[in-house]
Design a protein around this nucleic acid. Sequence first.
DNA 1: ATCTATTATTCCCGTTCGGGAATAATTACT
DNA 2: AGTAATTATTCCCGAACGGGAATAATAGAT
Lengths: 69, 69
Amino acid sequence: MIIKSAQDIGKIVKETRKKQNFTQVQLAQLSNVGTRFLSDLENGKPTCEIDKVIKVLANLGIKLEVNNG
Amino acid sequence: MIIKSAQDIGKIVKETRKKQNFTQVQLAQLSNVGTRFLSDLENGKPTCEIDKVIKVLANLGIKLEVNNG
DNA sequence: ATCTATTATTCCCGTTCGGGAATAATTACT
DNA sequence: AGTAATTATTCCCGAACGGGAATAATAGAT
């Protein structure tokens, strides 16, 4: 899936988390972020800090990839 | 290229920008971010805001992709 | 429909982002 | 080497992040 916005990331985080039967609280603890942050992230908040986003993705086994020309 | 940290993103931004003969000032203006932000980003600052990062990548033609299981 | 679990939203608040501009430092060019 | 250009770093400061906790709202299950 191609990411074009923060919303896209939120969507995939939410989807994947549910697929793996995680609750926000669980994933937040696992990722060392607050539950507020995770909620914000899943709802597409555009100002989330990149490092925490990456950590959450990692804890869901989601691979983030970049495609240069 | 697989992204594991903010540093990885910074690296590819810098590389790609140079390949395309952009200066930080140019890319910053193009992306509607400050030059400070761009410098920080390229140097791997972990707290950069996700939306601006995405915008910069887009302006370099770098595709951001997510790989779910 | 009811009750519970999960998620979203609000609050307080310390910390930090990021813009802009100036300055230092680094790099590139001849 | 010397000069110009590019980048990094510092400063000021308003605005917003994110944690924690409480509350409201939503969804899920029986």
